[in-house]
Nucleic acid binder design. Structure first.
Lengths: 296, 296
DNA sequence: TAAAAATACTCCATAGGTATTTTAT
DNA sequence: ATAAAATACCTATGGAGTATTTTTA
């Protein structure tokens, strides 16, 4: 079988002009090197060097083999060099999956610092709902997820980043609009607007509503948080808004809950077998909650 | 030290989706293969595969190493093939890929003379569409391609063999059936039948049709040229047929184009690094156009 | 006759084998 | 429960060593 070592030996012979000099350069004895050259020649069934000549001379065939041998050796060297540079974990491709109820609120402030801190990191973003993200993670199509940790995440390893409390969003002029704080049971009898199926936020809000005695408005299913907010602002009902999604709005009143505050936990998740786990943990700092709260 | 064997093992793992399957393919035991993988990982100081997963999953770093490993292995394979062909160029295995719109028309007449002229050549035939062939060539799974040179062939080296003009095929009794020659714009308004996606012939015919103002019949997609011809013969529409594929048919009329004649170029393609390039060129003579033209 | 390479042999490092345990589905 | 990979241990191939002979400039 052809070996890398054999190729190193024959290129050394060409480079140093002889078996002896080559053996010295390769830190082996001359007979050892000779044996390898012989073995390669036997394997290729081709004479590479003309024997019995003072300055070792490659045959015509040998020159062609030598040319290719150098190509192989540089490819191997490149591979080892690549391994070296890949050892810095926060470089290369990182496929990050983010849920739609987090992405627009956390990513804008996170990406620029992240890129600056780790310029070698090639970040690829995917926005999808929790179920799809978890499956993609398991299948090796994503490396890291940014989502709400309340959802079932399978065997993934996680890092909690911050709690994201829900606020009650009501239209200006609503009966509850003047309140400083609300309790979950204040929701009783309210028409609650929710997101489409598949959003983990929908399930979380639904859990709050159900044991508060509120009922979901059957006809409405918002496909995005923006739509949801606009529908509430137009007086169609009330909704639960995560604080990171809460932006000031003329027609909207956002009221925090009394304790116990219903909330979700934003965090990172990765395959528990991933070799970059520590690197992922260190990325958590970039995805902390935005500083400017919309309201007390 | 990195060895060729280690690179073979890790690419086998990727290819066969597991250590066990890979060890079988490499004719070694699983512990033997595992040990070599471990050794390579230790040497590179890099985890290449996530352990403890059913379908062995390469790490992000592993994928990059695997890409380079494949490059090294093809370079080595080329070197060994070079050695072989430096003795007798036209002997040993030659894996020939041919596109489906060429194979049935060119191979029958070519194979027998080829085998007679080069009995030491062990010819292996693969029929697939251009995209798959080009990828297989690049990856070192094929040695030589016989196809239409109009398609994107990457960095491959090529040899044009002959032009293959398109003929217009119409059903007997069609309005154009009596014409001695047609122009491209005669196609305007015709229902044109084409092959499935992926056939380069489809793209070439589509190019002719589009600037001639013809429209493709949406419901029909033939998976083979035989089907295509039968559909035209049954009056479903017209089509463009390469001349090498044109066989006399009772229900079909084949009309040549006036200049400029739309055509494809049949030729050979090989890796630009291939050591048998000269031998491949000499094979061109066996794949010239068939002598018996179906029509003027 | 000096150099460089080949030959003869010896040794030991390690690739690869068998048997078994551990781990993940 | 089953299948895959890791671990432990052993064997033997072959790479590399020393000593020596052969070769040709």
């Amino acid at each position: 079988m052809t070996t890398i070592r054999q190729l190193e030996y024959i290129t050394a012979i060409e480079e140093h002009g002889g078996f002896q000099a080559a053996s010295a350069a390769c830190h082996v004895t001359q007979p050892g090197l000779s044996a390898q050259v012989r073995q390669l020649e036997d394997h290729l069934e081709l004479q590479l060097f003309e024997r019995g000549r003072k300055p070792a001379l490659a045959t015509v065939e040998g020159l062609e083999i030598l040319r290719r041998a150098r190509g192989v050796l540089t490819a191997v060297a490149d591979l080892e060099e690549a391994a070296h540079s890949l050892r810095r974990p926060l470089s290369g491709r990182l496929r990050l999956g983010v849920i739609p109820t987090v992405a627009p609120f956390l990513l804008p402030g996170a990406l620029k610092p992240l890129r600056r801190a780790h310029p070698a990191l090639r970040l690829e973003l995917y926005e999808a709902q929790t179920g799809d993200l978890v499956e993609a993670l398991e299948r090796g199509r994503l490396d890291l997820l940014l989502l709400a940790l309340e959802a079932p995440l399978g065997p993934a390893e996680t890092l909690a980043l911050f709690p994201d409390p829900f606020l009650l969003a009501v239209p200006r002029g609503h009966a509850l609009a003047g309140r400083k704080r609300v309790r979950e049971r204040d929701l009783a009898g309210e028409d609650v607007l929710l997101l489409d199926d598949g959003h983990c936020l929908r399930d979380q809000a639904l859990a709050v509503c159900s044991h508060a005695g509120a009922h979901e408005l059957g006809d409405f299913r918002a496909s995005s948080m923006t739509t949801l907010v606009q529908m509430v602002a137009s007086g169609a009902g009330v909704t639960l808004l995560p604080r990171i999604a809460a932006a000031p709005d003329r027609d909207l009143v956002l009221i925090p809950f009394q304790r116990p505050v219903p909330q979700r936990t934003i965090g990172l998740a990765w395959r528990h077998t991933s070799p970059r786990a520590e690197a992922y943990r260190s990325l958590g700092a970039f995805f902390r909650a935005p500083v400017g709260r919309p309201r007390g």
